[in-house]
Design a protein around this nucleic acid. Structure first.
Lengths: 136, 136
DNA sequence: ATAAGCCTTAAAGCGTACTTGAAAGCAAGC
DNA sequence: GCTTGCTTTCAAGTACGCTTTAAGGCTTAT
């Protein structure tokens, strides 16, 4: 069971060009090829790409993924270091979670100000622009 | 009560150059100047910059902030449109929250795999690299 | 046999958001 | 009066992650 780059792309919702780019960057060190040099993706490759996409979407740089791959190639004795990298990313996830919570609060506050202005409870000049939509 | 750009920068933890860049982009349309042309930041300006920083950190593009500022300048009749922009950002926040949740799960799964390898419960070749740290 | 549709590589280009650098002006302290 | 340290503007540079382009090759359908 192996897939062409197009099938991989469709299953992952990720452009084929991006997958090639990842391979070029060393994030996919062992992708097999058919007799014409075409890439053959196994289920495991798709899993790994999906995992990388998940980490990328939450702010892990391509370079960090590359480092994890290089450590994995080096062997299981690098697991402590890899664990550290993941723990660091987990801290980063927590930081971002806090940022999201702050942003939710800010958005809701702003929406409530808009409502008060429209209900006439707040002077537009004061509550609208002067307060924080750009300052005055 | 007004602040120099350096004071603003220190209070916000945001480089002075970045604040100037925001002004140039139209995100700070009404920053006052002293008799020498130096920027004078009021408390309200700092609040607005802080709010923008909060939105930026959670993925709102500079262009979207610019649009909000332009609408605010246009007057309170643009509040429905501004509300829409904020509602959209709120949806984006929810999307990112889900991404973070997925990433937490993925990190924890990976960490548990590392633990199993180190405890000898899992073959390194299988559970470590072959499973998903790079694929093989 | 020729066009369609997939694949390959290498290189250049692009978008976003800063970030840095250069040149110069004003003000206070020694 | 000269240095220090702030400020200004404008322009160029940087970082990251794709994304697009170009040139070409194989395979299958018409």
């Amino acid at each position: 069971m192996s897939f062409s780059i197009k099938e991989a792309s469709e299953r992952l919702g990720c452009p084929a060009h991006t997958i090639r780019y990842y391979e070029k960057e060393g994030l996919l060190p062992f992708i097999k090829r058919d007799e014409h040099g075409n890439r053959l993706f196994e289920q495991q490759d798709l899993h790994w790409i999906k995992l990388m996409t998940c980490f990328r979407a939450t702010g892990m740089p391509v370079a960090a993924l590359k480092k994890i791959v290089d450590l994995a190639i080096a062997g299981p004795q690098t697991i402590p270091e890899r664990r550290l990298l993941l723990e660091n990313h987990k801290q980063e996830l927590k930081r971002r979670q806090q940022e999201l919570d702050d942003a939710f609060e800010a958005v809701d506050y702003k929406l409530s100000v808009y409502n008060e202005i429209e209900n006439g409870k707040l002077d537009a000049k004061h509550g609208d622009f002067k307060m924080d939509d750009g300052t005055q």
